[in-house]
Amino acid sequence: MTFDRSNLEHVARLAMLDLSDDELDSLAKDLDHVLSHFEAIQKIDVSDIDDTDLAKTITTPLRADTPAGSLSNEEATKQSARAEGGLFVVPKVIG
């Protein structure tokens, strides 16, 4: 399949990325080129690997559920471009 500008516009919306007109053109071309090279993996027989095989080596470590220290409110909000009263301030979400 080919990957064109309309595919890219859809993916850019999903990725929350503002792209310029020039970027839409050049990145669509780049991704089309990259994906056509990556078609090679479609030819590899993976029928012997079950979907559930992929999770078999992963284990989740557990720890005791005991309270521990963390960043203070001040430290956690210090790097924000806009924070007030220990909260992150963002543009209005509901009109």
Binding site: V11, L27, D30
Partner: peptide, 16 residues
């Protein structure tokens, strides 16, 4: 930058 955008877009597409 451009390469980071390229990879975010490629990865978003691969997961979409």
């Amino acid at each position: 930058g451009t390469e980071v955008k390229r990879r975010i877009l490629l990865g978003t597409h691969a997961l979409s």
